[in-house]
């Protein structure tokens, strides 16, 4: 029951944070120089037209009134209408968000699935060749800009070898009739995976490198703990010590880093989407900013905030799930 109580508590804490996100987004957007009305109406609108538009969007009202209006709209999940696309902002976000989420989930999975074994091998073979190789790979991964990795992958695998597509993503749940050369859902999924590979590596390499180093150092630390010695002293095999006694503890620092890397990855997603021509949230933000589509800017920024807050909550909950000291009270 303690874990449930902790979960509920953690979710409730998110409410004020989200209100904060709305507030900051609103104030920042308001502070952006430039007048949206002039963008909508062209260079020299008449005074009446301008006033009419201002009234329509409520821009003639004082800041605090506009703020509360926006806040209550957000609570009703109404983010207004995009000036540029002339559709509701929520509709645009719902269209783009799954694409970016697919990319994020895929690259974090790639990073974790490669980093955890690499880190453990490094720790087990400390200062041996395998460890040195993994160190060099990690160093390269951290220091190579992701857009460069993306361009190289495109040149090699798309242009030279011509084995993988270089642009856009296909959703694995898309209707087969909308996907070129796909006759059934399996074909769609295969196409989706092919499209995902290069962007995933592009976005995930940095994460992979960071996770590998964390995994190595925390594994090393845990393997030196008394309880690992105790397990050895009771005849537990080395394999089981790694898999069971050390593994869970060693993941705690990694979980924290995964949460923190979310911001880096969101930034990376904008770049990756640009390089691979993917119509996700990243490119939506750029379009919104370029066109001073203030409601769309607010909506997308808000969405990034929400994704981050949700990510942090998931991180915290996983941490609490793995480490009972967080979710259970001490009772001496």
């Amino acid at each position: 029951m303690s874990r449930l109580r902790y979960t509920i508590g953690r979710l409730l804490q998110a409410i004020p944070v989200l209100i904060g996100v709305v507030t900051i987004t609103f104030l920042l957007t308001d502070a952006i120089p430039g007048d949206p009305v002039s963008i909508m109406l062209g260079p020299s609108p008449s005074a009446q037209q301008a006033a009419a538009i201002r009234a329509k969007f409520g821009l003639d009202q004082p800041l605090y009134v506009r703020y509360f209006n926006y806040l209550f709209d957000v609570i009703r999940l109404d983010l207004g209408e995009s000036l540029y696309y002339s559709v509701p902002v929520t509709q645009k976000i719902m269209e783009r968000l799954p694409i970016t989420m697919l990319l994020m989930v895929s690259s974090f999975t790639f990073a974790l699935v490669t980093a955890i074994p690499l880190g453990i091998i490094s720790a087990k073979r400390r200062n041996k060749p395998a460890d040195h190789i993994s160190r060099v790979v990690a160093l390269l991964g951290v220091s190579t800009p992701s857009f460069w990795i993306g361009l190289m992958l495109i040149i090699i695998f798309a242009f030279n070898l011509n084995v993988l597509p270089a642009t856009s993503l296909v959703m694995p749940w898309a209707d087969p009739s909308t996907v070129d050369g796909a006759s059934n859902q399996i074909d769609v999924i295969i196409t989706a995976i092919q499209h995902l590979i290069l962007p995933t590596i592009t976005l995930g390499t940095l994460q992979m490198a960071a996770f590998t180093r964390i995994e190595r150092s925390s594994m090393l630390e845990v393997l030196g703990e008394e309880y690992v010695k105790l397990a050895r002293a009771y005849g537990v095999s080395e394999g089981k010590i790694l898999r069971k006694h050390a593994f869970r503890n060693a993941q705690l620092p990694l979980i924290t880093i995964v949460g923190l890397q979310l911001t880096t990855a969101l930034g990376g997603a904008v770049l990756t989407e640009t390089v691979f021509n993917i119509n996700g949230m990243g490119r939506l933000v750029i379009t919104a900013i370029q066109n001073q589509d203030f409601l769309l800017v607010m909506g997308t920024t808000l969405m990034f905030g929400v994704v981050f807050v949700v990510g942090v909550i998931i991180t915290d909950l996983s941490y609490a799930y793995v480490d009972p000291r967080v979710s259970f009270d001490g009772g001496d």
Binding site: R248, N249, D323
Partner: peptide
């Protein structure tokens, strides 16, 4: 042969 360590705070695994 079984062993008992000095520091009982460190010898038990905190996550089990």
């Amino acid at each position: 042969i079984a062993i008992i360590f000095q520091d009982p705070m460190e010898a038990l695994n905190p996550v089990f």
